[in-house]
Amino acid sequence: MLEIKKAEKQFGERTVFSGVSFSAEAGETACIVGPSGCGKTTLLRAVAGLVPLSDGTVLLDGEDITSWKAEQRPVVLLFQEALLFPQLTVLENIAYGLKYGRRKLGRRARLAESRAMLQKIEMEQWENAYPVELSGGQKQRVALARALVLKPKLLLLDEPFSSLDASLRQSLRTWVRSFLREEEVTSLFVTHDKEEAVMMSDRLIVMKDGAVQQQGTPETVYHQPENRAAADVIGDGLYDERFIPASSLTIGAADGYSGIIEHPQFMHGYRFYRVNVPSLKQTVVVLSDTLYEEGEAVKLSVTEEKENGAL
């Protein structure tokens, strides 16, 4: 189990984040979602031990690892790119940590475990290939295998799908999620993509401006953002003293919020409009089957019954 208590990081005068506390149960995937520059990647690197925290503690299974070196922590970080060792074959890459790292094994055991892992990621036939011969998705799978073969107490993932193209990203996400569940790995995932965050996580932590804005189950956080910042990051809707989900907004009523149609959007077979609401300085995407012109002024009304996502 991972516990972060009052973590703070400063680079010179600049505070990257402060007062960050959250926890993740064993076997859970916790996900930090936030815009770029909110401090989430630095936080992840601090948990990995690659940068020191200015203040606060990191507990792993009750043990204080705050001052441990990165190479000593039972934690592995997966980067945005796979970062495989180009001079080593796929199998040698997977066995790297077992040969040089924290969990040193003899040659025979090392190869056996690495081959077993290779099988799990369904890449047996690539055993002797070099990284230069793999596709982006295959590289990330090997990187994941290289990390998991060490049986880390915690796996950290820093937007590991962001360097892949859209369709590959989708399929790899699903694959990694079920893989992490099967292996019961405690993991901390960082992303700026709210869709990915909701999909990957058991526990969602919303970060903005160097602070945790809200945490809870993805369901709760998505439907009930507690403040404007959390709503900006994760919510689909408007925030006006309280959160109004997009699903309870209707275009075309006589009164309500004044908005301007920005452009139509088509998703899942439906037509949506992106509407700018100048009085709240927010935009929202709302379902509608009526035709509107770009730039047209409309009213957005709130229908209370539709709250909580019931369409």
């Binding site: 690659l50 000593q72 934690v75 970062l83 060792f85 790292g101 924290r102 990390a147």
Partner: peptide, 11 residues
Amino acid sequence: RMEEAARSLGA
């Protein structure tokens, strides 16, 4: 970043 990846693997 390769160096950080290696550190993270315990090298």
